[in-house]
Simulated assay, not measured.
Amino acid sequence: MKTGNYMNIENGQYIAGEFLGVRVEDKTNRNTGETWQEYFFGISIPVRKGYAGQTVTIDVKLPKAAIESGEQNGVQEYVGKFALVPVNIMANSYKDKAYVTNYFDKQRKIILPNDLKLAKAV
């Protein structure tokens, strides 16, 4: 199941769209009362076969290692721009439902098309 526009660059998956920014979601463990925060990058992509200008927002979840290294703090320059966001896709299922989660891949960088240099085929 695809959840966005993907491009294979640098041997990985990218979601291509307008970078919307960072969203923080507060979570609480119902059993222990422990609280934590989850961070997401928002990427806006056009709706396939949708109305002119219609978009959908794709959430890209930041893994714990990315949060600890402060990835959520260094993305202001991308807000409002078209960007390629590197992701690792994890498929899960629960009872009779299946879903995918897009995780930010901190081993690769967010690419702006102006920064993209294509190598000439040899």
Results as ranks from 00 to 15, higher is better:
Met1Tyr: 09
Lys2Val: 10
Gly4Ile: 02
Asn5Gln: 10
Tyr6His: 04
Asn8Gln: 08
Asn8Arg: 14
Asn8Glu: 15
Asn8Thr: 14
Ile9Cys: 03
Glu10Val: 02
Glu10Met: 11
Asn11His: 09
Asn11Gly: 07
Asn11Lys: 12
Gly12Gln: 10
Gly12Glu: 02
Gly12Arg: 10
Tyr14Arg: 01
Ile15Gly: 00
Ile15Lys: 01
Ile15Phe: 13
Gly17Val: 01
Phe19Pro: 00
Leu20Asp: 07
Gly21His: 08
Gly21Thr: 08
Val22Ala: 02
Arg23Thr: 15
Arg23His: 08
Val24Gln: 13
Val24Glu: 14
Glu25Val: 15
Asp26Cys: 00
Thr28Ser: 07
Asn29Met: 06
Asn29Ala: 09
Asn29Leu: 07
Arg30Pro: 14
Arg30Ala: 11
Glu34Pro: 01
Thr35Val: 11
Trp36Leu: 12
Gln37Asn: 14
Gln37Ile: 05
Glu38Phe: 04
Tyr39Pro: 00
Tyr39His: 08
Tyr39Asn: 01
Phe40Val: 07
Gly42Lys: 09
Gly42Leu: 06
Ser44Arg: 05
Ser44Asp: 09
Ile45Ala: 08
Ile45Lys: 13
Val47Cys: 06
Lys49Ile: 02
Tyr51Ser: 11
Ala52Pro: 02
Gly53Trp: 06
Gly53Arg: 08
Gly53Met: 08
Val56Pro: 03
Val56Cys: 06
Thr57His: 02
Ile58Phe: 04
Asp59Asn: 12
Asp59Gly: 09
Asp59Glu: 13
Val60Ser: 00
Val60Cys: 02
Val60Glu: 00
Lys61Pro: 06
Pro63Met: 08
Pro63Arg: 04
Ala65Gly: 06
Ala66Thr: 04
Ala66Phe: 09
Ala66Gly: 05
Glu68Gln: 12
Glu68His: 12
Ser69Leu: 07
Gly70Cys: 13
Glu71Asp: 03
Gln72Gly: 04
Gln72Arg: 09
Asn73His: 08
Gly74Asp: 10
Gly74Thr: 11
Glu77Tyr: 03
Tyr78Cys: 05
Tyr78Trp: 05
Val79Gln: 06
Gly80Glu: 03
Gly80Gln: 03
Phe82Lys: 08
Leu84Val: 05
Leu84Arg: 01
Leu84His: 04
Val85Lys: 00
Pro86Ser: 06
Pro86Trp: 07
Asn88Trp: 00
Asn88Asp: 15
Asn88Pro: 02
Asn88His: 03
Ile89Cys: 11
Ile89Lys: 15
Met90Gln: 14
Ala91Arg: 13
Asn92Ile: 01
Tyr94Gln: 10
Tyr94Val: 05
Tyr94Thr: 09
Lys95Tyr: 14
Lys95Gln: 15
Asp96Ser: 15
Lys97Phe: 13
Lys97Pro: 03
Lys97Arg: 14
Ala98Gln: 14
Ala98Pro: 03
Ala98Gly: 09
Tyr99Glu: 07
Val100Ile: 10
Asn102Leu: 02
Asn102His: 15
Phe104Ser: 00
Phe104Gln: 00
Asp105Arg: 08
Lys106Tyr: 11
Lys106Arg: 11
Gln107Thr: 13
Ile110Glu: 01
Ile110Gly: 01
Ile111Thr: 07
Ile111Lys: 08
Leu112Gly: 06
Pro113Ala: 06
Asn114Gly: 09
Asp115Val: 05
Leu116His: 12
Leu116Trp: 06
Lys117Asp: 04
Lys117Ser: 07
Leu118His: 08
Val122Cys: 03
